[in-house]
Design a binder for these strands. Sequence first.
DNA 1: GCAAGTAGACTTGTCAGACATCTGGCGACG
DNA 2: CGTCGCCAGATGTCTGACAAGTCTACTTGC
Lengths: 234, 234
Amino acid sequence: MARKSLVGVVADELLDRIIAGDFPPGSSVPGELELSARHEVSRMTVREAMKTLEAQRILSVERGRGTFVNPLNRWASLEAVLRAASEGQNEAVASVQLIELRRMLETGACELAAARISDADIQKLFGNVAQMRAAHEINDVAAFVAADLAFHDLILRASENVFVAVLFEPLHRVLEKRRAETSAVPTIQEHAIGHHLNIVEALESRNPGRSREAMDAHMQQTLDDLKNLVLQAP
Amino acid sequence: MARKSLVGVVADELLDRIIAGDFPPGSSVPGELELSARHEVSRMTVREAMKTLEAQRILSVERGRGTFVNPLNRWASLEAVLRAASEGQNEAVASVQLIELRRMLETGACELAAARISDADIQKLFGNVAQMRAAHEINDVAAFVAADLAFHDLILRASENVFVAVLFEPLHRVLEKRRAETSAVPTIQEHAIGHHLNIVEALESRNPGRSREAMDAHMQQTLDDLKNLVLQAP
DNA sequence: GCAAGTAGACTTGTCAGACATCTGGCGACG
DNA sequence: CGTCGCCAGATGTCTGACAAGTCTACTTGC
C-alpha cells in the first residue's frame, strides 16, 4: 500500500533534515543540482518534491536566488508542524495541544449546531449513542469507535460551517489512532456514553450555551483520559 | 511584483475549472498530455501544477489510472475552499462562516492565554490599547489596524499552542483587508477599544472563563459590524 | 464454451540534457 | 567615485524518451 514515489521520499527526507535543524528558518536550502546529486535522483524529481513543500508553505522558492525555509508559524500543514513539534521529549506536549485545538473547534461547532441542527439529525445522534451503548455491552471496540466518530462528524456537519470541517479533517486523521486506544477502556466508554447523551439532549433543547458546555465537558474528559493513559505509558 | 510563474497560472486555471464544476469531486481530470495541449505548456509544467494541487489535497493522483478531484471537505487549503465557497451569491455566507471560525480560535486561545500569559505581555497588551486610542484620536487608520493586529497576535502566541497559530495564519491573511474596512469607522474604533480593554483586564485577572467571554463579546461585535457594513455595501 | 493469460493502449513516474530568465556581485569604463 | 555591463549561479521551462502501473479486450489453451 502506498509505496511512496521517489518525489515523496525526497520530500520526506528533506523535511526531516529541515526539522532536524540542518536548515534553520530563513536560511537557504541546497540548490536543486546539489540535492539531486545527494539523493541520487534527477533534478526534476527534486523540483517536484520542492513544489510539494512549497505548496505547504514550508519552503519559499525565489527565482534566481534560491529556496528558503519559512518560519514554523507560516507552515500550512498541520502534519508537518506536528512532526516538528513532536521532536524529542515534546510529543506529550504536542498531544495535549492537539486536544486543546480539537476542543476549540468541537465546542464551537456544537454551539453553532444547536441553532441549526435538524430534528432528523438529532434522532441520528440518539441512534449513535444507542450504537455506542450496544457496542459497549458486547465489548466491540471497533463498533464503539465507529459510532463515536460518526457522532462527532454529524455535529461538525450540522454546524453548517465548511471551514470548520476543513480545519478539523487533518486533526481527525492525527487523533484517530489515539482515540482507539483510549476508547478501549470500559470505564472510559461508560463516561463517554454519558457525555454524548448530555450533548444530544443539550442540542435537542436548542440551547447554544448549554450545548457548548456539554461538549466542553466531554473534551475535558478526553483530555484527562489522555493524560492518565498515554502520558504514563512506558 | 509577484508575476506568477507558468505553473502558478496553470494551477489557478485548473482550480478555477474545478470550482466551476467542470470536474466534479470523484471524477477524473484530463490527462497531463491533454492539459499541456490546452494550456499550451509542456507536460512538465502541468505536472508541477498538479503537484501543488495534490499537496493541498485538492487532487489525488493515481499512477496508471489518472488524476481525480477530491471532495471539498478533504481539501487542506483554506484559501481554495474559500474560493469554492464564495462562488455565486455565497460570498456573504462565506464571510460570516470565516468570522465564526475566527471566533472559535480566538476565544479558545484567549482562554488558554489567561493561565499562561506573562506579566510583561500583559503590559504590552495595555500598550497596544493605548496605541489604538492614540491612533483613534488622530484618525490614523493604518496605525489603529497595526496595533489591533499586534494585540491579537500577542494573545495567540501567549496561548503557547503552536497549532492554533498555524490554523489561524491563513485566516489572518484572508480577513486582513476586511478588517481594514470595518476599522475605518470611528464609532467602531471606539467599540473596539472598549472591548480590547476588557480583554486585557480579564487576562490580568488570570480568569480563563472571564477572558473567553471578553474575547467572545469582541468577536460578536466584529460579526455585527460585518453584517451591518460589508453585507449592505453596493 | 469458458476461463486464464496476455498483448496493447493509456496513464502517471522518472530521467537526461538543453536553453531561457532572473539575481547579485564583481570589475571595467567613463 | 559612480554607473553600466558582464558573468556565475540559481530557478523556470521545454523537448523527447523510456519505465512502470492499470484497465480492456482479445487470444489461447483446456
